[in-house]
């Protein structure tokens, strides 16, 4: 009986957690099918305004351009961050010394600096480099992500030292060991990092808002926010835009879901 009660409690807790997680998505999708006044009045059933909302959205923004911008930024930033952070994480763990440990500790300390404090110096740097209103300005500051370097460094602890030794005996140089052994062995770590980085870049708001100044350069996230800043926002249109903006990250997550979980649990078994 006790065991049954225990199970009921667990399932109740999980159901609440699942509802809390899924409800915003449901609300978003239902909202996308309703007109603004219905959404504001709290209508929770699907309506028939999906197509109208979509048409209105395409009249207000250039969807293709927005998706192109967002995808370009997220894909390039993700690829570059994976390269830089995994190389750094590998080096910090494999070539450990007092100096490298101190550098790493300093990097971790930098995590505590709020982005608000970095915004102005970063903007000044980008202005001096004549990169304001370019996608390069959005991408550059994200590449050397300290959190992702930390994540790779921790994951590298599970990379068997004997594999590296075997590769050295087999005649591989360090970069070959990294490319031919480390990368394939740690692929679930890469998958998990891909999701984290892609989502962070796709959803980035503050920094792109500061450096991207014309509509042709803006991302889907900025566009959704600008829809909300209208004098009277059309929430149906906002819901459609938000739904569309969420789809790529959902897609990436579902594709890499298995590796993501494995990557967070530790990639080498």
């Amino acid at each position: 009986m006790n065991r049954r009660l225990h199970r009921i409690m667990i399932y109740t807790m999980l159901s609440i957690a699942a509802f809390v997680s899924v409800f915003p998505f449901l609300w978003l999708i239902v909202g996308a099918t309703n007109i603004s006044p219905d959404i504001l009045s709290g209508k929770a059933t699907p309506g028939h305004a999906l197509f109208d909302n979509f048409v209105k959205l395409t009249q207000q923004v250039d969807l293709v351009q927005l998706f192109y911008n967002s995808t370009k930024i997220a894909v390039i930033a993700t690829a570059l961050t994976l390269v830089v952070a995994s190389l750094a994480g590998y080096a910090f763990e494999i070539f450990r010394s007092q100096l490298s440990d101190r550098i790493f500790a300093s990097l971790l300390a930098m995590l505590s600096i709020p982005f608000a404090a970095l915004m102005i110096p970063l903007f000044v740097i980008m202005a001096k480099l004549h990169l304001i209103n370019t996608h390069t300005a959005v991408i550059i500051p994200t590449i050397a992500s300290i959190f992702i370097i930390f994540y790779f460094r921790q994951a590298t602890k599970s990379f068997p030292a004997e594999l590296r030794d075997a590769a050295r005996v087999d005649g591989l140089k360090e970069w070959q060991i990294f490319w031919h052994i480390y990368v394939p062995v740690m692929r679930s770590t890469y998958a998990a990092a891909t999701i984290i980085i892609f989502m962070a870049n796709w959803n980035a708001y503050l920094w792109p808002l500061i450096v991207l100044q014309t509509n042709e350069m803006k991302t889907i996230t900025l566009a959704v926010a600008s829809l909300l800043s209208a004098y009277v926002p059309d929430y149906g249109v906002v819901m459609v835009a938000t739904t569309l903006a969420t789809l790529p990250t959902l897609f990436i997550f579902f594709v890499l879901q298995k590796q993501f979980v494995q990557g967070l649990l530790g990639s080498v078994k």
Binding site: P160, E162, L163, D165, A166, A167, R168, V169, D170, G171, L172, I181, V185
Partner: peptide, 15 residues
């Protein structure tokens, strides 16, 4: 790799 040796490891170290 240039010493003319080959090594078998405790954990086998197969890729």
């Amino acid at each position: 790799s240039k010493r003319g040796i080959a090594m078998v490891f405790q954990s086998y170290a197969l890729y």
